[in-house]
């Protein structure tokens, strides 16, 4: 059974979240303080973390960095503020996605969680290639030569999305629906921040990207293949 760790200091909301998640067939670990997260995380590694920004102890953005330092587990931030600043901080700290309280529909939360948990592109067999990287979709590996590059699941999905259609230019909206499962979203910050993070891991020079190439005014596309 899937285990989701819910980190929130509001007990009623935490309880409500667990009722909703349990209803969707998901087990829940509740943590009320930022400084207790790592211990619980190590003892019961969850499949996904639902993390509030405002926390006693250590704040959510810091907790996010601590988890990212030792795990590629999907993280969804819960924020009471829709302000750009907090959202970007959370995403830069390593969160895959964020939800602004109050959620439009609780079912939206479930959908987001499921998107982040599902095995994407499981239909693709064999290897994909992008620039000088090869991607083993089944094994969830990205290799540069023999060296394994470690990516979060979301970064991996982003890379696969671009690599499986090498000629196509993806608009940010298209990537949002492809990778995050959003329909009709205009939030381009998610895409921008994650492209930056992905580039910092795979590009030789993140300032002059050759693998995830920006198409000005439109979006992104996969860089040309390099045969080494």
């Amino acid at each position: 059974m899937t285990l989701v760790m819910v980190v929130d200091d509001d007990q009623d909301l935490a309880e409500m979240l667990s009722i909703v998640l349990n209803g969707a067939g998901i087990d829940v670990d509740l943590v009320g303080r930022g400084d207790e997260v790592l211990e619980v995380f190590r003892n019961h590694p969850p499949d996904l973390v639902l993390l509030d920004v405002m926390l006693p102890g250590i704040d959510g953005v810091e907790v996010c960095k601590l988890i990212r330092a030792e795990s590629m587990v999907p993280i969804i931030m819960l924020t009471a503020k829709g302000d750009t600043h907090d959202v970007v901080l959370g995403l830069e700290a390593g969160a895959d996605d964020y939800m602004v309280k109050p959620f439009r529909h609780p079912s939206e939360l479930i959908a987001r969680i499921k998107t982040r948990l599902r095995r994407t592109n499981s239909d693709i067999a064999g290897l994909l290639a992008i620039s000088d990287l090869s991607i083993d979709v089944q094994a969830h590996h990205v290799l540069r030569g023999k060296k394994v590059i470690s990516l979060t699941r979301l970064e991996f999905d982003l890379l696969v999305a671009l690599a499986k259609e090498p000629g196509r230019v993806f608009t940010r909206d298209a990537l949002l629906s492809e990778v995050w499962g959003y329909r009709h979203s205009t939030d381009t910050r998610l895409v921008n921040v994650h492209v930056q993070r992905l580039r910092s891991k795979i590009e030789h020079d993140p300032e002059n990207p050759e693998i995830v190439v920006t198409v000005r005014g439109v979006g992104y596309k996969a860089g040309a293949l390099v045969h080494s």
Partner: peptide, 17 residues
């Protein structure tokens, strides 16, 4: 507005159920 959001989220989910 910020403080109202957390209870509203709880309310929202409860009402949804």
């Amino acid at each position: 507005s910020h403080e109202l959001r957390t209870p509203l989220t709880t309310l929202r989910m409860a009402s949804e159920i």
